[in-house]
Amino acid sequence: MTPQARKICMLGDFGVGKTSLVARFVRNTFSDAYLTTVGVKVDSKEVALANGQAQKLVVWDIAGRSALDALNMSYLRGASGLLLVADGTRESTLRTAIDLLMQSRSLLPDAQAVLLVNKLDLVERWEVAPSTLVELRHTLPVLETSARAGDGVEQAFAELAGRLQA
């Protein structure tokens, strides 16, 4: 039986680790080299849901932007979920992630969203304060992740998959 497929989009400023998170999630690989994404990369992976069913996630890794333009909007069409990604070592990327969520709401009013604060392995250089994350958790799920070490990555995708199912 073909599992149900859902489109999810990675959204966030450039350099926050969206491509690395997808690489860790889909292929369990990581590279330290930073290579900016142009356009979009589409990958897919099946995840097992809590109810035992499988779900196919079609992951759109969209080029990092601080604001959504028409091009990005065209990539978002049909998405059921958003993985918003911020870089814990750059607090400004957290604001960008929230801004992108707001902007996407006009096109995707019902999309589920989960916030990933990445680069947990560099936590000693984080600018994002724990208290900020506590505040954010009142409005949306927030997970700290490390694409380099793999911490929180599976959980983040599973969290979103679970919310898509609900």
């Binding site: 497929a5 859902r6 489109k7 142009v38 356009g39 979009v40 990369k41 589409v42 897919s44 079609v58 080029a63 091009l71 065209s74 990539y75 069409r77 049909g78 998405a79 059921s80």
Partner: peptide, 27 residues
């Protein structure tokens, strides 16, 4: 793979997706 690109989109009109990475990495 190609069908996944249009997942969730209404398939009753032309859709343009620029710069999509293909299976071999080409754009």
């Amino acid at each position: 793979q190609l069908q996944d690109l249009f997942l969730g989109m209404p398939l009753d009109e032309t859709i343009d997706l620029p710069f999509v990475q293909m299976p071999n990495g080409r754009s």
